[in-house]
Every structure is written in C-alpha cells, then in structure tokens.
Design a protein around this nucleic acid. Structure first.
Length: 476
RNA sequence: GGUCCCAUCGUCUAAUGGUUAGGACAUCACCCUUUCACGGUGGUAAUAUGGGUUCGAAUCCCGUUGGGAUCACCA
C-alpha cells in the first residue's frame, strides 16, 4: 500500500510552530519512502475561519520547500481538498452510518457552556435522543426539525489500538463520548470529517497531536462500522512554551511568520523543530530538508513533550547564517540596510564583518546603529586596563592616527590596519593603544562588530576623519 | 473528579539490563585576538521518589509524587 500522509490545518489565522512540525513529520514520513504528501483544508467551523489563512499555509509550506502532491490549489484524484466543499459527502456517509447503527439523529439543542465558577466536573453526556426510533427520527427530520447526527456507542469493554509512538493504548468504551458528527448546519465536526476524508483520500498514516489519543477509539469505531481499515496512527507530543503551558496563539507565542520577521531563516526554523521530539540517533544536528528525508524514521520520535527553546534556535540560526555564501548573506542583509542606514557606507565590507557575528538578521539593526549616528558616549570608554589606554593615551594616539590616516588614499581595511600597526611600532606603542581609542572614537560603543580599521573602512575616509576630530575635541 | 499519557543535566536529547550516564544549547574558565563575535580547549550540571525482579536497573514491574491531555454542534 502506498504511503500517503496529509497536513490538515484549519484556516484560523497563522502557522503555529507545532502545526508546522506536524506537517514536517507528515511530509517526511511520506517522502522518506516515496509516498504522497497532501494538503487538506479543514474549514468546517465557519465561525473560526480567518480570511487569508490559506495563503499563509501555502506560503509557509512553500518557503520551507515542503511541496504537496495534492491540494486545493493543484487538485488531485481525491478532491475536493477543502472540507466545506465536501459537505454532501459527509451527509451521505453520516446517513449511511445511521443505517449501520453507528450513529443516530439527535434533536437536543447545543449544549450550554457550563460556567467555570461552579466547579462541577465534566460528566459524560447522556443523549436522550438515542432512544428515539429511526422511523420517528426520520419523520421529524422530514418535517424540518433541526437535528444533528451523533455517534452511537453501544460497544462495551476495552478498545485497543496501536500507536507508532505511544505503543498499545487501551481505553474503556464507557469513556467515549457520543459526540456530534454532523452539525445542525449540515457540516461535519472534525471527529467525523477526518475519518471520512482520511479513508476516501486513502491516507495511510495519520500524524496528529497526542491530544487526540483519547478520542482515537471513537474514530476506530466509525472505521469499523463502515468496514474500513484504520490508518497507522502517529501521535506526537506537544510543543511547549514551558513545563506547564503549550505553545499557543492565545499566549502570543511565536508563529512561523513571527520568527521569520524576527530574522530567523526558514531553513533554520525547520531544522530546529525537526529536532523537537525527534532525533537521528547520531550527534548530527544540522539537517537540510533533503537530509531529513534520508534519515527520518518514526521509531525515533519521542513520547514526551518538548519545550521550544528560542535560545537554541537562535544558535542554530547563527550556524545557518555563517554557512550562507557571502553573496546570499549580503542579499538578505540588504533590506535591513535600506531600512536603517542612509549614510553611504561600504556595505559589502559591512556584510563580511556582520556575517560571522550575528545570530539573527534582526541583529543587524543593533549592530549597525552607530554607523548612522555616532552615539553620545562617556570619556570613560577610553579607559581600558587590558589595552593600556586612558584618555591621555587616547588623545595622543588619535592625533597620530589622524595625521597618518589623512595621507591614506587606498581606503581599505588591510591598508589601514598596516598603517596603524606601523604607527604603533614606530612610537613604541601597543596595537591596542592605537586601535582601541580609534574604535571608540569611531563608534562611541564599548563593543562593536568589527575592529577599528574595519569600521573606518566601512565609514569611509571623510566620516572617519570627521569622527576622530570630534573625539579630539571631546577629549579637550 | 473519571480516563489516558508522560518523567535523564536549566533546555533539546543519547544510552532498547552491564557506559567513568554520552552529545548539543545555555553557563563558567582559559586560548586565539584590533574591542566584540567566530573558532579551539576544559569545567559545572541529570536518571523525580519508594519498593520490588535481577549477579547487575536510567532501562523491567508496582506504588507515590509531579506534569500534561481529554470529558464542545473547536479542531
């Protein structure tokens, strides 16, 4: 049987990191063995629908290169791939399930939300409509009475199923809730739609969050009643924000697009989340999507929840930035330069200075601010014990540096560095006594990306001389 | 509350009865050095807990504790 997996998000606004990880695992399961990966939009709750969501889903999958073989936009042999367009299919199967005894018509109104205050524990819903005869129910439906179709669970005993990650799970049929399968509006709930669609679309492996473990026996019951074969189940643990809370939109936690906006590279994000709950069994940590396809196996999926660690993602992003070609890095940095820097600078050199030092593209902003405007700084900055400088030394060496720099025409880092090193030697000074004060004069900051001569080279001759003169004035 | 699930350094994890419990991030120290960063070297740091089983347990079993999930006309 061909391996077919699906990513089935609801279009509710944005791409959650946990969802993206689920999609990745689905993609890898299919692609590691030449199977199909498809995209299905689960929009059966029209109340939660958010305009533009499907584009976010498409764009996210495209930017991380997870291409789907079938989907709403490209079609396929199992369409339509949007659940709201499959309404008649669900109705047909729901009615069939009623005939088979796996469901019944229900005329109870929607259950009222229990107020949080009275701490009554949730109890299983006992549906009185279960006892209405099929004939009577059909008559009421024909008469136009609003109805839902609910799952009927008469089975007793223990249900068993196997999960690829959690192993064998046993749940008592008594625990199962006779949930609504087809809503009053004629649309199915997830509980029904996923079963019908996964079967009709010949999905072989269902990957989803482990919060579905407890309802899986209900789905199996539906498969059983229809005489269908259930898929292979792969329940994956949650991605957590901390030990108590899972990552959620409600807490304003990072989504894929938020992370990209914060300067993280899509490849790095994907690499990081692949390792949240899965490991290759080796020490290798940097994986391209292609490499993941080669070595991914469900056996190495983890059972326990994983906390999303932005610090480690940041490190990994730094690795990806350093691996970029100089050209590519410059291209990615350019929008940040354009937005934050107006001064004429040697941007190529700036990129080469920045690339090994930053961890997210957004770091560019804080690392380059002093180029635009020399910040106010305290003269204490010139005092550095290790460099053996203080304001007196600074005054002296800046004068010397200014003189020599005025004569330099070939304004390149190597040339500047050579000149100033020679100057230090000629005056029996340590390199640091010349270079440290110069860097302070040019940047006004205690630490900077790049050394004094690199900064000078980036700034250009005019502004460099200008800032040295300003510094000398400041030093009196 | 019922039911189900989970439990190794702060974090992500490796070790499928025998390891000085390994790696990575973070952190600390040192080296490199034109500040910072990169890079390099080294250090601190974990089997939640109590019982079994076994020659031997992080690993298997039971209890305890802690955490999570679920019990919607949401997915």
């Amino acid at each position: 049987m061909k391996v077919r997996t699906r990513f089935a998000p609801s279009p509710t606004g944005y791409m959650h990191i946990g969802n993206l990880r689920t999609a990745l695992y689905e993609y890898l399961i299919a692609k590691s063995c030449g199977g199909d990966f498809l995209l299905r939009i689960e929009d059966t709750d029209q109340k939660r629908y958010v305009e533009g969501s499907t584009d976010i889903i498409y764009n996210t999958l495209k930017t991380v290169n997870m291409n789907w073989d079938e989907g709403p936009d490209i079609g396929g042999n199992y369409g339509p791939y949007v659940q709201s367009e499959r309404k008649s299919i669900y109705k047909e199967y729901a009615e069939k399930l009623v005939e088979l005894g796996g469901a019944h018509y229900c005329f109870c109104g929607a259950r009222e939300e229990e107020s949080e205050e009275d701490d009554k524990v949730p109890t299983k819903f006992k549906d009185p409509c279960k006892n209405i005869s099929l004939e009577e129910a059909k008559a009421r439906v024909a008469a136009g009475e609003p109805y839902t179709i609910r799952q009927t669970i008469n089975k007793k005993g223990i249900s068993h199923f196997h999960d690829e990650v959690y192993g064998d799970i046993e749940i008592d049929y008594d625990e199962l809730d006779e949930g609504v399968l087809l809503k009053t509006d004629g649309l199915p709930t997830y509980n029904f739609a996923n079963v019908v669609d996964d079967h009709l679309m010949e999905i072989s492996h269902v990957v989803r969050g482990n919060e579905y473990i407890s309802s899986t026996p209900k789905y199996n019951l539906i498969y059983e009643t229809f005489g269908w074969t259930p898929p292979v189940y792969v329940h994956v643990p949650q991605v957590m924000k901390d030990a108590q809370h899972k990552l959620s939109k409600r807490n304003g936690d990072a989504s894929f697009q938020d992370l990209v906006a914060k300067g993280y590279l899509p490849e790095a994000i994907l690499n990081y989340i692949a390792l949240l709950g899965w490991n290759p069994g080796t020490d290798k940590e940097i994986f391209s999507l292609e490499e993941l396809k080669q070595c991914f196996t469900v056996e190495r999926l983890n059972k326990s929840p994983a906390i999303f660690d932005i610090v480690k993602l940041t490190w990994m992003n730094g690795c990806y930035i350093r691996e970029l070609s100089a050209e590519k890095f410059h291209e990615l940095a350019m929008p940040y330069y354009e937005q934050h820097l107006t001064r004429r600078l040697n941007l190529q050199l700036l990129s080469s200075v920045l690339q090994p030092r930053i961890e997210t593209l957004k770091d560019i902003i804080s690392q380059t601010d002093f180029f635009e405007n020399l910040p106010e700084y305290n003269l204490d900055l010139y005092v550095n014990k290790k460099m053996k400088t203080d304001t007196e030394v600074a005054k002296k060496t800046l004068v010397l540096s200014l003189d020599i720099l005025k004569t330099v025409d070939d304004w390149k880092n190597e040339v500047l560095f050579e000149q100033l090193k020679n100057l230090a030697v000629a005056n029996e000074l340590k390199n640091g006594q010349v270079l440290y004060p110069l860097r302070i004069a040019l940047s006004g900051k205690e630490t900077t990306s790049g050394g004094a001569t690199e900064i000078a080279a980036i700034l250009g001759k005019d502004e460099t001389l200008n800032r040295i003169e300003q510094a000398l004035q400041k030093l009196g």
